[in-house]
Structures are given as C-alpha cells and as structure tokens.
C-alpha cells in the first residue's frame, strides 16, 4: 500500500492494478480455517508446462476404473484421449468397450458401442438418478473440475489424499466422510483412492500419492486440453511483441529526438 502513495504515477498505477488483481485471487471465500493445500510439482505448470503423457494415461486408467463409476465427464469426447498420447486405434477400442444409449430401428431405446466421436459415457442418466444412487449427494461432473475449484490441481490432489479419521470430538454426520481439505470437512464422497487401488498397466508404483498425482494430471488435461498449444503460441506472441515494442520505441526515439519536451 505504501508504494502507491509515491507520486510516481506509472509505478503506482501498475502496483495498484497488481494489488487489485492479487486481492481477487488471493482471498479465500470464507474466513473458515482452510488448511494449506499440498504443493505438488505439476508438469503442466509454468509458461513452458506440458502434460506428462505417461502420467495422464495412468490417470485415465484411474478415471476409467474408479471415478467413472459415479462422475461424468460430459464435455469431453473419447477422441480427446489422442491428446494424452493414445493412438486412434487405442481410442476406438476404449470407446467400443463402452455402451451408450441409442435408438433402434423401431425408435425404442437401446444401447450401442461408443465411437471415438462420442461423449464420455455418463454413469447416470440424469442428476436425479445420480443423487438417488449416492445418498442424496450429486457427484460433480469432472470436465472442468480443476478449473472450477479454488486451488485447482493442488486442491483436487488434496481432496483425494486428504481422507483421515476425524479428530476427537468432531461430530460427523451419518453418511459423510472426514476430509482435511474439504470446506467443513464433511464430504459425501467416500475415500476413492488408497495404496494399490489400481494396478497400473505400465507397472508404476501404485501408491495413493502416485494415483492422485496421475488422475489430477489427467483431469487437468481434460479441463484445459488447449494448454500446450496456448503455451507454445504464447511464447511466440510474447517474443514477437517484445521485438515490436523495441522496434516501435526506437522509431519513437528517432522521431522525437528533435522535439523539446
């Protein structure tokens, strides 16, 4: 705050903008004690970040075997899996192993094998069915879950690894589970991942930390499939603009050289 008082207008304005920006992102919603989220080193953070393909593929395996029993991925298509390094044939095979609703020639509801161009199959036909099957709780859609939570991938990782026994004296509502990082600590989702929940195809150590890391990598990819293209283009654009800024400044200096101002 103090720096804004200095009448160096430009600096103050920039600091002001930064302060405003920071206040938007920094403040948590409630004054409630929110424990600090685990800080994970993600392959996709930073301006040069890309998705770790192997981790994302393992993460898909976890989504496929565990999460997809309750959570939909309604914005994503099977063809999107090409982005984590699967071949078209692999994608077609994965899709074909799922059955999605369709109509037969008499117009009656039936099922058919999914195609690469199909959306991920939803575990429940609608929200009411999802609630009914989950004791009234609605498992949220995971398409953009990483962007839809304050803290992003760290938060999702925290939730997945944050299931512990409630502290002494904590009154847990029936049907709910204690989670360190969930607001209010009472979460309807039972602990989904433990050591060895999945057996990785590639033989990677299946500790809960590894599983959580992998599935969050996959969900981050599903939430922002454009990230790698965005980062690549961003670097080019910034370099170009730096060049253009320098160039235009040189032109300006030359033009204004003879003006007293």
């Amino acid at each position: 705050m103090m720096r804004t008082l200095r009448p160096t207008f430009i600096g103050a304005a920039l600091v002001g903008a930064a302060l405003l920006g920071a206040s938007v992102t920094a403040a948590p919603a409630r004054a409630e004690e929110a424990p600090e989220l685990p800080s994970v080193n993600w392959s996709f953070s930073g301006p040069f970040g890309t998705y770790d393909r192997a981790a994302a593929q393992r993460g898909f395996q976890i989504y496929n075997e565990v999460c997809s029993n309750c959570h939909s991925l309604k914005e994503a298509y099977y063809r999107d899996l090409i982005g984590i390094g699967l071949s078209m044939q692999q994608v077609k095979d994965i899709a074909a192993s799922k059955r999605v609703p369709a109509l037969d020639e008499n117009g009656q509801p039936t099922e058919r094998p999914a195609l690469a161009s199909d959306h991920f199959r939803a575990p429940f036909p609608n929200d009411l069915a999802a609630r009914a099957a989950n004791g009234g709780g609605l498992p949220p859609d995971l398409s953009v879950i990483v962007k839809a939570r304050e803290g992003g991938p760290d938060y999702i990782y925290g939730i997945l690894t944050g299931f512990v026994d409630p502290p002494a004296g904590f009154h847990l509502m029936p049907g709910l589970n204690y989670n360190t990082y969930f607001a209010g600590h009472q979460i309807a989702m039972p602990q989904p991942l433990r050591d060895g929940t999945v057996t990785y195809i590639d033989g990677t150590n299946n500790s809960i930390d590894q599983e959580a890391h992998d599935v969050v990598t996959f969900l981050s990819f599903i939430a922002s499939p454009e990230l790698e293209e965005r980062h690549r283009m961003g670097i080019k654009v910034v370099l170009f603009l730096l060049f253009l800024t320098g160039l235009s400044y040189a032109v300006k200096r030359k033009l204004w050289a003879n003006v007293h101002h």
């Binding site: 920006g21 938007v24 992102t25 949220p140 962007k147 839809a148 939570r149 965005r230 283009m233 961003g234």
Partner: peptide, 16 residues
C-alpha cells in the same frame, strides 16, 4: 491470455 487466462476470473463460474 496465454499464461494466466483464469487469474482474474472466478473458479465458481466453471460450475454450471
């Protein structure tokens, strides 16, 4: 736009 596209937005707006 390229590196912090969601910095000024609110995460809740990614929930329908």
């Amino acid at each position: 736009v390229f590196f912090f596209p969601d910095l000024l937005g609110h995460s809740d707006n990614y929930i329908q």
